[in-house]
Design a protein around this nucleic acid. Structure first.
Lengths: 194, 194, 194, 194
DNA sequence: CATGAATGAGGGTTCATTCAT
DNA sequence: GATGAATGAACCCTCATTCAT
């Protein structure tokens, strides 16, 4: 039992170190040497666990995908009212920005670093964002289902606007190192949902 | 005089080559060697004109700033109605995406590559984006000034929402290689301005 | 009993895989990883059976020595006339070149890869070649013994010439990927033996 | 004037160092690090002059081709009699083996290290050997032209036999670190030319 | 007898930059 | 204003081998 944990220790340390460095510095700016130095493993140990740097990046994105959605849903699920659940998307962003070394969205950042759209990593990014888009749509659907008033705007349109505001808030907060965009977007969504 | 023109030729070629490569491939992924090779200049000539790669990047951003705003304002100025001028922001985006090798916003991409907020390049990016934000605010002000109806929402709030939708549209279009976000945001703005 | 067979199975697989790879790719170009991957054994199993890569090479040469002479003698022994037996040396070469992935003589190839003459492997190579030289000498002796006519040339000289033609044919066929040298040498030997 | 020599000094040192090491140790056994260390240049200087290790090998073979033929022809040209000129091929071999760090033929050795026949280097090797074969044929042609006696054997056949004996002598001398094969082949050729 | 994790040393290559001319 | 040679540091990756289990 303890064995399993111990044996994959080094792989875990590599992944967690890369997890941090890829997010904080970016993919290209982070070298294998720094990763193994901070993880405290030998270079060959790295390549024993990961065939290449890109494969490590893929593992990073898989973990990030799970973690990030877990954080997001934890915040959303702390609310029951459909309207509040939607607005909590931006509460999540504000919390993210203020309580961690915020460097924007790891997936958006990697989009900048990997120019070729039809690559493994770019496809993973699209999958991640498509899941976010779908999740927001579900939140909006719940809201529309509950509110008796006949909505004039379709669910999809409404959801996409919120999605774009969400994405725009992330990138803008990253650029300015400020939360004004998040608050502004939250208020905009509040008005839209009235 | 002719000399000056001739002599700055190589500087121009370097800058224009970097302009293209930095945008298409990113900063880290573009090496000095590729730049001088494609520009057709000697390595020492490069360092004669630009003290470092970062200085070249600064020159790139300066030129990009001028060019991009020139393109944007050209599109906006082709309309007179304040409402149309605002909506033309998204017409501009659609045109950008469809008529060029679209790789998102050069400034947002560089934000991903330069982690440290308090650096020369990151400050240039903020200046660029702040100017865009201010420009959108002016467009919204013109719209509000004209429409007699007393707006309940403040100009600044309205402008920021449009700004965030604009930014979100860029990044989303880049992720999906699709214009759906632009069209969706344009419609959202249309409704908001009603 | 069954155990012994089963347990030496992995050793056999390693040796046979190395047998093929060392010959097709060369010693330096063949890594331990490729060998164990294609043999389907664990890395530690490899070092359980062979103390080092060089020891595996030694085992390879031992097996190769037995196999190769077995093939050669099988061809030679299909003839009874001393003259035909000598000429069959070149029939063997032609068959070797045309019916297999011919990459020259494994021993000569390793001579290129191991520069130091006074090493275990180089000594094995000399032993192998000395045995070939001796074998050819025996064939020539049989031929001289039978033919009543007093040969003016000594047996040793004649045998060495054939030996050198044999070796030259192998290396030349490898260089040109062609059998012309084998045929030419065969004809030369035919004339000499007249 | 001195400038030109000085500026290409480092390229020359790299090539000459590789020239020696590739011959003495082989291609795979010689690393870039050793080459630059013994040449006394920085690693990047190496890649400034040679795009890759393989390109250095190509340059090595080009120089070797010129040098080796120069040595060979110098020996042959010290004789006037066609018969002596042919026999001097083996005098050259003997001299080569006894007056230098003989490690066989650089081209044959590389044939062992580069398995793929249809590659740049393997093609260079064939060209080198084809030129040797042609050169020997010319020597034999001169001999046949002069000797009035009608040769029964064709020039091409005779030349090829000598070529194969020449190649076989090189490889055999390398294997045994001995000149017996050269002497034996020389005597064989003497008899053949009688 | 067998395993996979871990290693130090080195593989070939490219980086942004500086130098003398 | 322009050149190409030269550099130290770092790039990603692979080598044959040893270890604990």
């Amino acid at each position: 039992m303890t064995k399993t944990v111990t044996s994959s220790d080094s792989r875990t340390r590599i992944l967690e170190t890369a997890y941090r460095l890829f997010y904080e510095q970016g993919y290209h700016a982070t070298g294998i040497n720094q990763i193994i130095a901070e993880a405290g493993v030998a270079k060959a140990s790295f390549y024993h666990h990961f065939p290449s740097k890109k494969d490590l990046c893929i593992a990073f994105l898989q973990k990030r995908h799970r973690d990030w959605f877990s954080w997001l849903k934890q915040e959303v699920d702390s609310h029951v009212e459909p309207r509040e659940r939607i607005l909590s998307l931006f509460a999540f962003l504000e919390q993210w920005l203020t309580t961690s070394k915020f460097r924007g969205c790891a997936f958006l950042n990697l989009t900048s670093e990997f120019p070729i759209p039809d690559s493994v990593i770019r496809r993973m990014i699209v999958v991640h964002k498509a899941e976010l888009r779908e999740y927001i749509k579900e939140l909006v659907q719940s809201f529309v289902d509950k509110t008796a008033s006949p909505q004039k705007v379709e669910v999809a349109s409404l959801a996409d606007t919120i999605y774009v505001l969400f994405e725009g808030s992330i990138i803008t907060s990253q650029v300015y190192s400020s939360i004004w965009a998040i608050q502004s977007s939250r208020e905009a969504v509040q008005r839209i949902l009235t």
